[in-house]
Design a protein around this nucleic acid. Structure first.
Lengths: 135, 135
DNA sequence: TAATAACCTACTAAATCGATAGGTTAATAG
DNA sequence: CTATTAACCTATCGATTTAGTAGGTTATTA
């Protein structure tokens, strides 16, 4: 299941990407429009800023703005930052690999074999879609 | 993330499907071979029996056995029983649909649009694979 | 200097997960 | 008929994660 954190993060980024001007958008505006708890959203946008998706400006007229073009922001990147691994099992994760403690040999593991296929197909979809495709 | 429940369930089913004879396999044997807590595995095999994947036999020489041919057991069916929805968001789930409380219109929701694609590609992989493919 | 909005830290209620404990029931072997 | 075996059932539990809330501080603008 996708966490609300990730879901809200994607919605917020989409909201910002939809702005006609490149003006900063306030957290409160996004929160109201997308029905998200403002405090929770604050923490999400902070993560997205710290990981290089957003810039920010304080004080009146401040807010968050996109640093890159929506076409250049792949959904894989967003989801990895907010949700963590895309793979359903750590032992097939490209960016968050971890060995299973129960599995002695990945090569003969039936789950491993299957989850690699799932990972690849998911990766294809999320790699093909950019923020621009969601606007 | 795939739960251990589902992971162990798939491993157990694969183990049973690998048996040369159709003889019942004991929980203890699977647990030992696959490094799974026996008690936990018991509860999983019980679910798989109640949902029609396995038959069981009590007493000495008892255990669990497949009811259908491995070729006829799709991975989608197994995962839906053990893990629940395959979709990452309830609002795009075919078997466990639920409306999002924050989202006023699914048609214009960016997350919805994306998650439908992820669901379909995952469904393709899990629908193409049967238990026989994992053995 | 007041208002604004991002930024930061800490806490928490509720749910879920991965078990464990301690039995009961039914089938088989001797 | 009895002991053993293995499935079956119910309850509980510690740890972790989730989705927030509370209450501030810092920097920018009018």
């Amino acid at each position: 299941m996708l966490s609300k954190k990730t879901k809200y993060g994607i919605k917020a980024l989409t909201f910002i990407a939809r702005q006609p001007e490149r003006n900063p958008v306030q957290t409160s505006e996004i929160a109201k429009s997308e029905n998200i708890s403002q405090k929770f959203l604050e923490s999400i946008l902070l993560i997205l800023r710290k990981s290089g998706f957003l810039g920010s400006k304080k004080g009146k007229g401040g807010g968050y703005y996109l640093i890159k073009e929506p076409e250049d922001i792949k959904m894989t990147a967003i989801i990895r930052v907010l949700e963590g691994p895309i793979a359903m099992v750590p032992c097939v994760s490209l960016n968050y690999y971890e060995k299973c403690d129960d599995c002695p040999d990945e090569k003969t593991c039936s789950v491993h074999k299957l989850m690699i296929q799932v990972r690849d197909s998911t990766l294809n979809v999320l790699g093909d879609n950019t923020l621009a495709d969601l606007t």
